[in-house]
């Protein structure tokens, strides 16, 4: 019994200095896109960490104990929501034992709040349709205009837990929105010549991006969300590509492989590997560079 009491005392004692020295607001986001926007809004009052790398598919992240550790020390947690992270975030939140960031608490931000969502099911859905998301398509950060709302949701969260930073957050939010507004005009101008262009994507993950820039996905390499392509579906897709005059197939790096190469080769269409997320350590270091890169790659491919 004595041993247990000593152990408990030790646990309590070594926690003290950690909480005292923490000055910056500690934020953990599920994706790097959210991390980038949080950095822009939080400025130097915050220290931002993320879980899924931009090069990883955020649907399929393992609930590693090291992530639990990150969340156990967070003051604010930001997630995409809409079921994107439902395979791993609940386990992490439960394991983290952090009262501040549980769903419904001040330190919890669901970035999809008040976003105009696409693909909201209008009738009863079930899994015979594959991995459908009941509340709408979760890839909304790929419409740069949604960046405003995401940033605002994060700012609201920050204001709740750090009211003293009000001026900083409001100013940063204003600057971010201003910069984004200008950038969107620039991106739209670059994409204007390709209005109405038809494309094929692997998963239905580019819908927000395509809609913003007036492009259209006429087919997907997956027959249904999350279901691997069958030969007959691919054959059908190749026919669609030819019939619709599709010039590019867009795939995320983690979806690129045999299937996309095969369809590209058979249909004679370029396979464009596009990163859907900010990825630190690459040229796509923030939310603006993400769209700079996407627009540049797309316009290059379409100009040919």
């Amino acid at each position: 019994m004595k041993k247990i009491i000593f152990l408990l005392m030790w646990v309590v004692l070594i926690q003290k200095p950690l909480t005292v020295e923490a000055k910056k607001i500690r934020i953990v986001t599920t994706t790097e896109d959210l991390a980038a926007i949080t950095r822009a809004v939080g400025g130097n009052r915050v220290q931002v960490d993320f879980i899924a790398r931009g090069t990883q598919d955020a649907h399929f992240i393992d609930a590693k104990p090291s992530y639990i550790l990150k969340l156990s020390r967070a003051d604010l947690f930001v997630q995409i929501g809409l079921g994107l992270e439902s395979g791993w975030v609940p386990s992490l939140l439960m394991g983290a034992r952090n009262a501040k960031i549980q769903r419904g608490e001040k330190g919890y931000v669901n970035a999809s709040q008040d976003i105009d969502l696409l693909d909201i099911p209008t009738q009863k859905i079930d899994r015979s349709a594959g991995d459908v998301h009941g509340e709408g398509n979760p890839h909304y950060w790929l419409d740069p205009m949604n960046g405003h709302r995401i940033a605002k949701n994060i700012a609201v969260g920050l204001l709740q837990i750090d009211p003293e930073g009000k001026d900083t957050y409001e100013e940063n939010l204003k600057q971010f929105s201003k910069k984004l507004k200008v950038a969107v005009i620039r991106w739209q101008k670059k994409m204007a010549p390709f209005k109405g262009e038809k494309v094929v994507t692997y998963h239905n993950s580019w819908i927000y991006f395509l809609k913003r820039f007036s492009l259209e996905a006429v087919a997907y390499l997956e027959p249904k969300p999350g279901i691997p392509p069958s030969p007959s579906h691919l054959e059908h897709t190749i026919e669609r590509i030819k019939a619709e005059g599709v010039r590019i197939i867009i795939v995320e790096p983690y979806f690129h492989g045999k299937v996309s190469r095969f369809v590209g080769k058979k249909s004679g269409v370029e396979v464009l590997v596009l990163p859907p997320s900010v990825s630190s350590g690459t040229v796509i270091g923030d939310y603006f560079q993400l769209f700079d890169h996407l627009i540049a790659s797309l316009t290059d491919a379409l100009k040919q």
Binding site: Q15, R97, A99, K100, Q102
Partner: peptide, 11 residues
């Protein structure tokens, strides 16, 4: 039933 937010990392 499991607690969600006891202090000091307890559950």
């Amino acid at each position: 039933m499991t607690t969600t937010g006891l202090p000091y990392g307890f559950q």
